[in-house]
């Protein structure tokens, strides 16, 4: 048994070591990102040169210009934002309800359902685009943002449900009993007590669904066929992947532009992730 003070003594150098390694790892992890941004600023001939310098003496905005010059780039950006945000909100709500159902209730087919949810993720997405294509056509959703939002909701739900299940489970049953004893209605408990408690889980799942909707190529190129005004940002990136003559500067610049909103989104929501439940689940 160690005394309280010895714990403190051990802690401080430990923490400094931990923080130093966290920063070091951050640098290593960020290096490829730095290289991406750097390549976006390098002039065309310098991106792949025999002297790979981690800086450039002649930064140029040419690559970014080629990105922004594309027709309707602003429109693509907005479309991507609409798709990603709709997917995040709708799938969070649906998944929260479903996760509550599978955690707080026992019923037949519960486990089967949970596993069935995952099944669709186990096959290559290319294999599903043809059936989904006909489905979207029959719903009249082809060439609209709906044809992107709907499948993305469906593909982010399974993970969100499984994930939130863990968080709902962590909220003690006693809390629920207490709420009912206090005369809270079912929906009051659900939305005003349970919902805030699982918020960190919602944040983690929404980062996931935001990124997968934001970066998707496949649905965008399969379902937005004839109306380029409904296209999304990844299409603006693909322009630079031309067979035989790829424009790496453009690729890097477009990717940089695409990555920034995700980071902004994360900075906006990360406080929720960090503050989380805190002491809310005492007892």
């Amino acid at each position: 048994m160690r005394s309280l003070s010895s714990v403190r003594l051990v802690r401080r150098p430990w923490r400094l070591f931990a923080e130093a390694s966290a920063l070091l790892i951050a640098v290593v992890v960020a290096f490829p990102l730095y290289w991406m941004v750097l390549s976006a600023f390098k002039p065309a001939g310098e991106i792949e040169s025999s002297e790979p310098r981690p800086w450039t003496l002649a930064p140029s905005l040419d690559s970014f210009r080629r990105v922004f010059e594309q027709n309707e780039f602003g429109r693509y950006f907005l479309n991507s934002l609409v798709v990603a945000c709709s997917v995040v909100i709708v799938s969070a709500l649906i998944a929260f309800l479903a996760a509550t159902a599978v955690t707080r209730f026992r019923f037949r087919f519960r486990t089967t359902l949970l596993i069935m949810f995952l099944v669709a993720q186990m096959v290559p997405v290319e294999a599903l685009t043809i059936p989904l294509f006909f489905l979207m056509r029959d719903f009249g959703q082809l060439n609209t943002l709906g044809s992107l939002i709907l499948p993305h909701i469906a593909f982010s739900l399974p993970f969100a449900i499984w994930m939130l299940r863990g968080f709902v489970k962590a909220v003690p049953e006693a809390l629920e009993e207490a709420a009912y004893m206090d005369g809270a209605s079912r929906s009051r408990f659900l939305w005003q007590i349970l919902f805030p408690l699982v918020f960190p889980g919602l944040v983690a799942t929404s980062v996931f669904s935001f990124i997968s909707a934001w970066n998707d190529f496949l649905f965008a190129k399969s379902f937005i066929i004839s109306d380029t005004s409904q296209s999304t940002l990844p299409m603006a990136l693909l322009v630079f992947y031309k067979p035989d003559e790829p424009d790496w500067g453009g690729v890097m610049a477009a990717s940089t532009v695409m990555t920034i909103p995700v980071l902004v989104f994360f900075v906006l929501v990360q406080r929720r992730l960090v503050s989380g439940l805190g002491g809310a689940v005492k007892d």
């Binding site: 294509f133 496949l218 190129k221 399969s222 379902f223 299409m235 693909l238 322009v239 992947y241």
Partner: peptide
């Protein structure tokens, strides 16, 4: 975009 031609044309 050239990269998306396969899907686009099939869809068409």
């Amino acid at each position: 975009p050239v990269e998306t031609r396969a899907q686009r044309v099939k869809a068409a």
